[in-house]
């Protein structure tokens, strides 16, 4: 694996939404960089632009202007807009996503939910055994044949984390991963993320307004009014 110092680099990223005749500057000329193996947390009040930023970093959206390099590749820049198809290709190579609302498929078992990405794409080197290994690592080996409705919220988020990891992503993107969980479960998920970062060397970018969770990361970036304050 290439040991580049700057794994992710954002330069002057901006995102403007139009609402009626009004332009809303959700993100304003944001620049920063992240190294491989870092655990970076973005914190800020609602409307501070953290979700917009994470969507851009996670290639779920195009910026209005600015540049983004990822793992030595130029992703955004020179005003070119990537199609949904191109974005999908980048996403499946680099990212795993965890969201506040887990989004498990209710008709599939825990095992099937985790294996789901393989039905569409299998990254070279990703192994089927990874599914069971991840579930075991997250303490879910006894729940593999359960349906999502039969397990708790904390367990659902573990399943979602396992699902995000089966294709061995370079970066795990977690958007308010504990937003729907109580304090105890939140702490558990935090521990898991920390473990993944330390023991598996996974780069993690997390958005959270929970200060306890945000502090787990090696680096905390605060956001306000579409700008970052390190």
């Amino acid at each position: 694996m290439e040991n580049s110092a700057m794994f992710l680099e954002a330069r002057g990223l901006s995102r403007v939404y139009r609402r009626g005749s009004e332009d809303i500057h959700a993100l304003h000329e944001v620049s920063f960089s992240i190294q491989r193996g870092e655990f970076v947390s973005f914190m800020g009040p609602s409307g501070s632009g953290k979700t917009t930023l994470v969507n851009l970093l996670g290639c779920l959206d195009n910026p209005t202007s600015g540049e983004l390099d990822l793992a030595g590749r130029k992703i955004f820049g020179n005003g070119n807009v990537l199609s949904e198809r191109d974005l999908t290709r980048i996403r499946r190579e680099i990212f795993g996503y965890v969201f506040q609302n887990f989004y498990l498929i209710p008709t599939l078992t825990v095992l099937e939910n985790v294996a789901l990405p393989f039905a569409f794409y299998r990254k070279p080197g990703a192994r089927l055994e990874e599914v069971r290994r991840l579930l075991a690592m997250l303490g879910m080996e006894r729940r593999m044949d359960h349906l999502p409705a039969q397990i708790s919220g904390g367990e659902m988020q573990r399943v979602a984390i396992a699902r995000a990891l089966v294709n061995r992503p370079e970066i795990l993107l977690a958007d308010e991963p504990t937003g729907n969980l109580d304090t105890t479960r939140s702490a558990e998920i935090g521990e898991i993320l920390q473990h993944l970062n330390r023991n598996e060397g996974l780069t993690i970018i997390m958005v959270s307004h929970n200060p306890n969770l945000a502090r787990l990361g090696g680096r905390l970036i605060e956001m306000r009014d579409g700008k970052v304050f390190k």
Binding site: R85, T88, R91, R92, P117, F120, Y121, N167
Partner: peptide, 11 residues
Amino acid sequence: EIGILKTMGAM
């Protein structure tokens, strides 16, 4: 759910 499948790499 379909959106999630797309984040997983579904074209």
